[in-house]
C-alpha cells in the first residue's frame, strides 16, 4: 500500500518545487555551521543537530541560549514554544495533502519546516505524500549539507556576502506568496494583517506565541471578510486552490 502511494512523477515534482528552498537554505545552513563552530561544537555535533532537529530557528535559539549558559530544560521549553506554529502549519496542510497512510504521514511530517510548509501550501491543487518526500529530501539534504559546509568554512565567508545572503529566506517567502496574491488580493490582505499583527504582538509576546496568535486572528478575519455565506465559501476554496 505504502509503495503504491509513492508516485515517481509526484516525487520529482516535489524535488523541482524545492529548488528555490534548496538554494535559500544554503546561506542559513552555512551561518548556522559557522556559529556552531564558534560556540565550540564539533563537526559531528553541528551536523547531528541539523540531522536530528531539522529546524533552523530552533537550532539558532539553542546555540544562542547555550552560549549564554542557559540550562537544557529552559532550552527545550523555549524550542517547544517556538515550534507551536508548526502545529498550526500541519493542521492547515492536512487537507492539502491527499490521504496517505498513517505511517507515511508520521514520516513526512518530520520534514514540515516553515519553508517546506510555504512551498507545499502555495502549490495549486492537492499534493500527495510522494510530493512531500521529494520536497523534504531536498530541504533535508540542503540543510544538513550546508550546516557541515558552514562548519568547515568557519569564519571564512566575507562579511559582504554573509549580509546579502541573509535576505535569502525572506526572498523565498515573498517569491512564494506573490504569485498567489496576484491571482487573489485576499491572500495579500490575510498575509498583511498577519504580518502587521505579528510585528505588534512581537513587542509583548515571545516570537513563538506572537506568530501563532497573529496568524490565527488574521486567518479568522480573512475568512469573515471573504467567506461570508455559502457563495463566498466557494470563493474561499478558490482563493486557495488557485494559489
Amino acid at each position: 500500500m505504502a509503495t503504491a502511494e509513492l508516485h515517481f512523477e509526484d516525487f520529482f515534482r516535489g524535488l523541482r518545487s524545492a529548488t528555490g528552498l534548496g538554494i535559500g537554505y544554503v546561506p542559513i545552513g552555512i551561518t548556522y555551521g559557522i556559529i556552531a563552530r564558534t560556540g565550540g561544537f564539533t563537526f559531528l555535533e553541528t551536523v547531528a543537530m541539523s540531522l536530528m532537529v531539522f529546524a533552523g530557528a530552533s537550532q539558532f535559539i539553542a546555540l544562542n541560549l547555550l552560549s549564554s549558559g542557559v540550562g537544557p530544560v529552559q532550552i527545550v521549553f523555549t524550542v517547544f514554544m517556538v515550534n507551536l506554529r508548526h502545529f498550526l502549519m500541519s493542521t492547515s496542510l492536512r487537507d492539502k495533502i491527499d490521504e496517505g497512510s498513517r505511517p507515511l504521514e508520521m514520516i513526512y511530517s518530520f520534514g514540515i519546516t516553515d519553508e517546506t510548509f510555504a512551498v507545499s501550501s502555495v502549490e495549486s491543487g492537492k499534493v500527495n505524500p510522494a510530493y512531500m518526500f521529494g520536497l523534504n529530501s531536498v530541504a533535508y539534504f540542503s540543510w544538513t549539507a550546508s550546516s557541515g559546509v558552514g562548519y568547515l568554512l568557519g569564519g571564512g565567508l566575507p562579511a559582504v556576502l554573509k549580509e546579502s545572503l541573509s535576505i535569502a529566506l525572506y526572498a523565498l517567502f515573498i517569491g512564494l506568496l506573490v504569485p498567489s496574491a496576484r491571482k487573489n488580493h485576499g491572500v495579500l490582505f490575510v498575509a498583511g494583517i498577519a504580518g502587521g499583527l505579528n510585528s505588534i504582538l512581537r513587542l509583548v509576546l515571545s516570537p513563538g506565541w506572537s506568530i501563532v496568535i497573529g496568524s490565527l486572528i488574521a486567518a479568522v478575519t480573512g475568512t469573515l471578510v471573504f467567506d461570508n455565506g455559502p457563495e463566498a465559501t466557494h470563493n474561499g476554496s478558490e482563493l486557495n486552490d488557485s494559489g
Binding site: 492547515s92 541573509s166 535576505i167 498575509a191 490565527l216 476554496s237
Partner: peptide
C-alpha cells in the same frame, strides 16, 4: 466549512507572519 476556510487562510497568514517583521530585522 468555517474552520476549514480558516485553516486555508492560515497558510497565507503564517507566510505573512514569517515575512513581517523579520525582514526588517535581518540587518
Amino acid at each position: 466549512p468555517f474552520i476549514s476556510n480558516v485553516l486555508k487562510n492560515l497558510r497565507y497568514a503564517i507566510l505573512g507572519g514569517l515575512i513581517l517583521p523579520g525582514i526588517f530585522l535581518v540587518s
